[in-house]
């Protein structure tokens, strides 16, 4: 099977003693949205820089659509759009000037470039800024401009390194929506972040990296099941009485209950069938459920558990 992104024992050493990456092996399928999480200094950006040809690995290989990035960087990079760290922008150029250059780099025709510039700027909500110098842009606008550059040539694979870094909540929501849109269009998205809430919102699969090694990799759903732990947020029409709380605790599938301000957080084993059964039981108890939603899947707890155990699974 040809993966969208694949690495084999990727290692990057600086000097004789420090390894930023230590035998990282990844396999990311086409169309997947994969989160790549780890603490600062774990090696996430190093991996991305190797995948995008910015740095060379000490050993091991990285492939994009089956093409070795180190051996044939031009071919590999043709199908990638990348946003790495917080890139600088030529602040004396307008988006039109900058994107025209990159469009030509990707071999796009002039008429196609002009059309795509308008489309991408519309998508990232910068249509009125096409001919204004980037030096006048805010942080969020610059971020969106660099995303526009990453998707200009309609890549198969989008690599995003901390895409919401430095953004306000509105900016974070906008980026999240964009990622969802790219995913719905079939793009493979490889997204590095240390914000687990963002990863849980948009990713199918999460890879955990710590001190240059992959310590775990699983689907978001699988992590929830692996943790044997899930949380459901429930809002009721009326405040819960003591008796109501006891009746909820008595439901066999529920491990514990937190009640606050008319809402309850029910801790259970994380299995989808358990989720369904709990809802049925609550309704049968005439507890007037107004809203019922599964929260993140305990990603934070899982992250803490794997990072402290430092298990290597390569």
């Amino acid at each position: 099977m040809e993966y969208a992104i694949q690495t084999e024992n990727l290692t990057k050493a600086y000097g004789k003693t420090f390894k930023a990456l230590d035998g990282v092996t990844l396999q990311i399928k086409r169309g997947e949205v994969v989160g790549y999480v780890g603490p600062n200094g774990a090696g996430k950006t190093t991996t991305i820089k190797i995948l995008t040809g910015l740095i060379r690995p000490t050993s091991g290989r990285a492939y994009v659509n089956g093409t070795d990035v180190a051996a044939k960087p031009k071919d590999a990079l043709r199908s990638i759009g990348a946003l790495i760290e917080v890139p600088g922008v030529y602040d004396y150029l307008t988006p039109h000037e900058m994107l025209t250059y990159f469009g030509r780099v990707y071999g796009m025709r002039r008429d196609v470039i002009d059309q795509r510039i308008k489309q991408t700027l519309e998508l990232v909500r910068l249509p009125d800024w096409e001919h204004k110098k980037a030096g006048s842009f805010s942080t969020g606008m610059l971020r969106r401009l660099t995303i526009a550059k990453a998707i200009l040539h309609e890549p198969d694979i989008l690599i995003l390194d901390e895409p919401v870094l430095g953004l306000d909540p509105k900016g974070i929501i906008e980026i999240r929506e964009l990622i969802r849109q790219f995913s719905s269009e079939g793009m493979t998205v490889f997204l590095s972040s240390h914000l687990l809430s963002e990863v849980a919102e948009v990713c199918d699969t999460v890879i955990f990296l710590d001190k240059g090694k992959v310590v775990s990799a699983d689907s978001v759903e699988g992590i929830g099941q692996r943790m044997d732990h899930g949380v459901v947020s429930v809002r009721f029409l009326r405040p819960l009485s003591g008796a109501d709380i006891e009746r909820i605790k008595a439901i066999g599938l529920i491990k514990s209950v937190d009640v606050k301000n008319g809402a309850a957080r029910l801790h259970y084993d994380g299995k989808p069938e358990s989720n369904v059964e709990i809802l049925r039981t609550l309704v049968s108890l005439n507890l007037d459920v107004v809203s019922y939603a599964a929260e993140g899947v305990g990603l934070e707890e899982y992250y803490v558990s794997v990072m402290s155990d430092e298990k290597g699974v390569n």
Partner: peptide
């Protein structure tokens, strides 16, 4: 220095 290399180099050009 200005990190425009992060835009410029991950592209299909030598």
């Amino acid at each position: 220095e200005k990190k425009t290399s992060l835009l410029l180099f991950p592209t299909p050009q030598k």
